[in-house]
Design a protein around this nucleic acid. Structure first.
Lengths: 209, 209
DNA sequence: CGGCATCCGTGACGATACTG
DNA sequence: CAGTATCGTCACGGATGCCG
């Protein structure tokens, strides 16, 4: 655990970077926006991070009030890490970064790792104004979005824990285009590139189009 | 100049961090949002950065299309660094960071450096929806805001280069409160904590209140 | 003097091995 | 499974030197 290296500037952006400017920190936040995760799962979805750095960051973040560590009730009884309310407020930061980085994304490089839920953040932007639980199925895996959620995780890895208001099945290319704003979700549905199921308002509205 | 260390993740936020995640990079962007700056001025307004790191970052940023280096016409004939259009698009990232970091700001610590124009970013948010050239005078120094500017720098160090639409004179504490959203600018004017001069629409509207 | 390049000590990082 | 220990490497911060 580092003794907190600071920029020592009386500036709110610099203060923010004191807390989340270290390598890997914001990507750990991205992972935890999907809800509580175990150490091993975090390590698996952050390829390249070394075990000691991950452990150190998690301690720093807990000390700084961004995350908390909790022991699940038996059976299981493993530790999970989750964002505090303060940590969840970093969502706009990650969205601004993601929006800016969208144009750098381009084609997938052979060295690039991919996880399905990495599309959740930009997709959440594309669904702004909507509401409900949306399940997304890609070849690379499934995840779900809690669109318009006021508290708790804003998205999650794997299928939705309860019946989703809408289920979308699409390929990664379509997903990237929608996430990047090049293609509106409605147009993607019209073009037959998205299969919509479910009985929620959003699902019906999308099918009507 | 580093050979570009990458997270190697097919994720737009990770791509953004590949380019602006290094220490000091986003603070250099904050400085350059104030318009073209010389190396020495950048070094003076980024206390703590070492000369080689600053030079290295500036090269990285130029290579990555965030900044450009330009020689001023004689007399003067010095080099200045400025943001490209792509670099200026990082404004929302810095604003999101600044907004999040606002609650960490608190009192000024004895070790904290301050520059007047570090208040420009949050003040710009407080004036969202307005338009025009606003000059701000603090004890710590002067700066000006190009509120609603579509292109070019969004703020600048020192007094406004031409007659401002509004001039605000206030103290740092009031400025921090307004920037932090705890106090609306209108209420600050009403409380007599801001002296408004100038003949623009904004100046008149503020004085009327 | 402004604009770096070089050198050096320290600490952060990344990979691997190992342990409760 | 969830980290800690170890170690080589690289990035950072501070000082100093060089060159136009």
């Amino acid at each position: 655990m580092s003794p907190r290296r600071s920029y020592d500037q009386y500036c709110s952006a610099a203060r923010a970077l004191d807390l989340v400017g270290d390598r890997w920190t914001l990507l750990i936040v991205r992972e935890l926006l999907a809800g509580p995760r175990r150490y091993t799962d975090l390590h698996a979805d952050l390829p390249g991070v070394s075990t000691d750095v991950l452990a150190s960051r998690l301690k720093d973040m807990e000390r700084d009030g961004l995350t908390s560590r909790r022991r699940l009730p038996p059976p299981g009884a493993v530790y999970v890490y989750e964002l505090t309310s303060r940590g969840r407020q970093l969502l706009p930061v990650l969205q601004a970064l993601g929006e800016w980085g969208q144009s750098e994304l381009g084609e997938r490089r052979p060295t690039d790792a991919v996880r399905a839920h990495w599309f959740a953040l930009p997709l959440l932007r594309a669904l702004e104004g909507e509401e409900g639980l949306v399940e997304v199925r890609l070849e690379e895996g499934d995840f779900h979005l809690r669109v318009g959620a006021e508290e708790g995780p804003v998205y999650g890895d794997g299928p939705a824990p309860r019946e989703a208001n809408a289920r979308l099945q699409l390929d990664a290319e379509t997903c990237a285009a929608v996430a990047g704003g090049e293609l509106r979700l409605l147009d993607a549905v019209r073009a037959g590139r998205v299969t919509v199921t479910g009985e929620g308002t959003l699902a019906k509205a999308l099918r009507e189009a």
